[in-house]
Design a protein around this nucleic acid. Structure first.
Lengths: 119, 119
DNA sequence: GAGATATTTAGCCGGATGGCTTACTGTCTT
DNA sequence: AAGACAGTAAGCCATCCGGCTAAATATCTC
C-alpha cells in the first residue's frame, strides 16, 4: 500500500528528470538558489511555460520554493535525487550480482570441461 | 553537438524509467532474460499494450531483444542504467560540494562573529 | 497613487503516451 | 494441412505534455 505511493513518487521523479530544461534547472540550482525569473532567463522560454517546469520540479519534491515579496526563490531539496539514485543502485546491484553468478557458473562449466578434457 | 544527442538520450532513459510497468520489467530482467510473453503475463495487460513498453525499453537502450522462431527473448543491456546513474551522481556531487562550501562559509562567518564579539 | 516588476492564472494547440480491440503473420505441433 | 501459439500491425480513444498568448494579481519604487 505504501508501495503504491512509492511507485507514484518514482514515476514523478523520473518524469521530472526526463526533460532537458528541468535537468538544466537542477544543474543550475545545484550551485545555489535562484529566483524563477533568473532561472527562466537562461531558457529561451515564456515565463508561464517555464513555471510549469517549476511546478513539476516541486511536485516531484526535487525543488522547494518560497515567495518573499514578489519574487519566488527556488532551491534544491537536500535529498532531491536520493530516491531516483536509490532505485537505480538497487537495480544495478541485483543485475551485477546476477552477472557475477553467471560468470562463476560459466567458470564452473569450463572447469568441468577441463576436467573432462583431462580424463 | 554530441551534447544534444546526449541530452536526447537522457530524455529517453529517464522517460523510460518514469513508468512503473517498465521499472518492473527492468527489475525482473535484472534477474535473468525472459520472453515478451512471460513478461506480459505478470502485468495484467493486453500483449499489444505491453509491446509498446518493450519498444520504449529498447529505444532507450535499456533492453535488447532477439527473436528466435516465434518467441522474442529480452534481456537488460550490460550498461543499461549507467547513463542515468552517471548524471545523477555528477549532479549530486556538485550539490554536495556546494553544501560543504556553504558550511565552511558559515563557519568562517561565525568565526568572524566571534572575533568581533571578542573586540 | 502611478507605473514598473515578478509572477500567476486561464485557456488554446499540436503531438506524445498508454491503454484497448481486432485482424494478420509467422512458427510450432500433431 | 489444420490448429494452436507468440508476436505484430493498425488504428481508436482519453489524457497528458510542453510550448504559446493574453489578462490578472501582487509588490516594489518614485
Amino acid at each position: 500500500m505504501g508501495l503504491v505511493i512509492h511507485m507514484a513518487y518514482l514515476d514523478r521523479v523520473f518524469h521530472c528528470l526526463s526533460d532537458g530544461t528541468r535537468r538544466a534547472v537542477i544543474a543550475q540550482l545545484a550551485s545555489g538558489p535562484a529566483s524563477v525569473g533568473e532561472l527562466a532567463r537562461r531558457h529561451h522560454m515564456a515565463l508561464p511555460s517555464f513555471m510549469k517546469h517549476i511546478r513539476v520540479l516541486e511536485e516531484s519534491e526535487v525543488v522547494i520554493s518560497r515567495k518573499t515579496g514578489r519574487v519566488r526563490m527556488c532551491q534544491l531539496r537536500p535529498d532531491a535525487l536520493t530516491a531516483a539514485q536509490g532505485w537505480l543502485e538497487r537495480e544495478r546491484r541485483v543485475w551485477e550480482t546476477r552477472l557475477d553468478q553467471l560468470d562463476s557458473f560459466i567458470e564452473t562449466l569450463s572447469e568441468k570441461e577441463n576436467a573432462r578434457g583431462n580424463r
